[in-house]
Computed example of a mutant assay.
Amino acid sequence: MRTAVVVGTGLIGTSAALALTARGITVHLEDADPDAARTAASLGAGITDEIEQPVDLAIVAVPPALVGRVLADCQRRGLARCYTDVASVKSGPRAEVAELGCDTTSYIGGHPMAGREQSGPLAARADLFEGRPWVLTPTADTSTETLNAALELVALCGAMPVVMDAVAHDRAVALVSHAPQLVSSLVAARLENADETAVRLAGQGVRDVTRIAASDPRMWVDILSANAAVVADVLEELAVDLNTAVGSLRSLAADGAQDRQKGTAGIEAVMRRGNQGQARIPGKHGAPPTRYETVVVAIGDQPGELGRLFKEAARAGVNVEDVAIDHSAGRRIGLVQLSVEPTAVHQLVTVLTERGWDVRD
């Protein structure tokens, strides 16, 4: 691949353009909003010059409901030899592409499983897709050339290709992406009119659960509209479990020992199911999940402290697998939670303590 065009310079499109440009690809940028394309170009994502001859690959980076029409227009103009999209839903766009009579031999659906709470070109990052799955949904008549072009795109962006059927993809993302987004928003909505004292007690748990609730509602309406029935099915199943959990909690609050025993069993059952489901989420580099142990260190809220802590861990020969920070509401300190291999805990604690760090039990 030497040339490409990105049609739609939002977060995903601009991030792909930045990744390709960094690898020496000449990337043309188009957007219905010329200011967005110019913004992406100013970030180094590519150029807004008119395309004089077909490029190697066109990346349609628009909402699912627009994929068919935009692809048809791109093919009518002869923009590229091969085409793909990055929409988060695949079945609807595929059907529309067929209805509009697009050339499906030169088109393959795609969906990089990456994103951020922010949207637009200014939120884009060249490394957004590194190590992330990138789903490809070829049709029966997708040409080998088109598949190879899409695979090269995935490789250039540092992602991992996953070939799936479009319908299976939509069911999968409903479960692991779309329904969790709504659940996060529903939990965060409980905080909207909550007492200020309650909100000030918020810790890392509620921050983790509500992080993606900061996402752009308009963008998510577009996504959910294209996969509404499947997401509704997932939430309906969740509602059954939620009602069961409510019933168990009511039993726990009852006076009778038998009711409390029933409630305890119900809550424990759902928690254990949660344990089992969470344990199935792939771990580092897609490997089976690993149980790490956490070392908690208090650090001052000042420049360079976190960097110094990581350097100390490196000197101790310990690899930090994950990190989280719980900020104190009343003091200028943070509790840094370093996730490390169980065998490394003693070494890390010993070194940090010797060097004067405030390691917490």
Rank of each mutant, 00 (worst) to 15 (best):
A232I: 12
V345M: 07
R207V: 08
E236G: 13
H285V: 10
A202K: 14
F310K: 09
G205V: 02
D35K: 15
S106F: 01
I51K: 08
V60T: 05
D255G: 08
S106K: 13
T146D: 01
N275E: 14
P161D: 10
A194Q: 07
V345G: 05
W357Y: 15
A213W: 02
D255T: 15
R308A: 13
H28S: 07
H327P: 05
V5I: 15
Q75R: 04
G109H: 00
N319Q: 11
Y107N: 04
D358H: 12
L249S: 06
C102G: 14
G158A: 05
T48A: 08
G46D: 07
V349A: 06
G283C: 01
A214M: 08
A16K: 06
L242F: 15
R2I: 08
R308W: 07
H178K: 13
D326W: 02
A124W: 01
M160H: 12
V349M: 09
L43R: 10
I25F: 07
G277E: 04
Q258A: 15
V320N: 08
L122I: 11
G120S: 10
A172W: 13
T197K: 15
G334E: 10
M219S: 10
G13Y: 03
G317V: 09
I325H: 14
G247N: 13
N243L: 12
G266S: 09
T9R: 03
S91Q: 12
P34S: 11
R132W: 02
A36F: 09
E50L: 14
V86D: 00
Q258K: 12
A245C: 12
S119Q: 10
R272N: 13
A253F: 12
A155D: 11
R211C: 00
S143R: 08
A61V: 03
Q261K: 14
